[in-house]
């Protein structure tokens, strides 16, 4: 029956052609493969986003970050004196997202694992590490603890890729990997 005319109720009894069954089977199996693939990657893959997150407040997070910066700053950069902070290998680093900068500059070592704490002081921000291309949402009121191990050295940019107002495009941060 045409798609725009009512079929008689016999449609429910009508047999399904073999090719249609075959395609349904293929689609089902492919779906299962894709489903299992995500679980497989959690077990064997090396790029899984951390589940560790805490409720926080801008004041609490800023206090922790300031303590970390005070203890680990090795120098300052640019005429704005942005602190460059060496994160202890295997230790915790704090990165503040706020209108419109990433604070402070972090210095990491290749091959070491770090726990990077991310949170926002105001709006949503987007942690976009370039040119590696890792993108993580940063939300006010939530402290996200991401374990990351740099596999390359050099100077990396943190682009903000969640719209956060008129100065959004100036919100560029930096990570050094030695």
């Amino acid at each position: 029956m045409s798609s725009i005319l009512p079929p008689s109720r016999l449609w429910w009894k009508e047999p399904i052609a073999k090719t249609e069954w075959l395609w349904i089977g293929i689609a089902f199996v492919w779906g299962m493969i894709m489903f299992v693939m995500m679980i497989y990657w959690h077990i064997y893959g090396k790029q899984n986003l951390s589940n560790e997150a805490y409720k926080t407040s801008p004041e609490m997070f800023a206090a922790k970050a300031e303590k970390f910066i005070a203890e680990n700053t090795i120098r300052t950069e640019t005429d704005m004196d942005i602190p460059v902070v060496k994160v202890p290998p295997g230790g915790d680093g704090y990165l503040i997202a706020r209108l419109w900068n990433w604070y402070p500059i972090l210095e990491l070592e290749k091959g070491q694992e770090y726990k990077i704490h991310l949170s926002s002081m105001d709006y949503n921000h987007g942690f976009s590490l370039q040119p590696v291309n890792i993108n993580i949402q940063v939300i006010p009121g939530y402290e996200h603890v991401v374990k990351m191990t740099p596999t390359s050295t050099g100077t990396f940019a943190i682009v903000c890729n969640e719209y956060c107002g008129i100065g959004h495009h100036t919100m560029l941060g930096r990570i050094y990997v030695k």
């Binding site: 790029q47 951390s50 890792i134 374990k147 191990t149 596999t151």
Partner: peptide, 8 residues
């Protein structure tokens, strides 16, 4: 994905 930094 397998080529980016390690994350866990």
């Amino acid at each position: 994905l397998s080529e980016v930094w390690l994350l866990s």
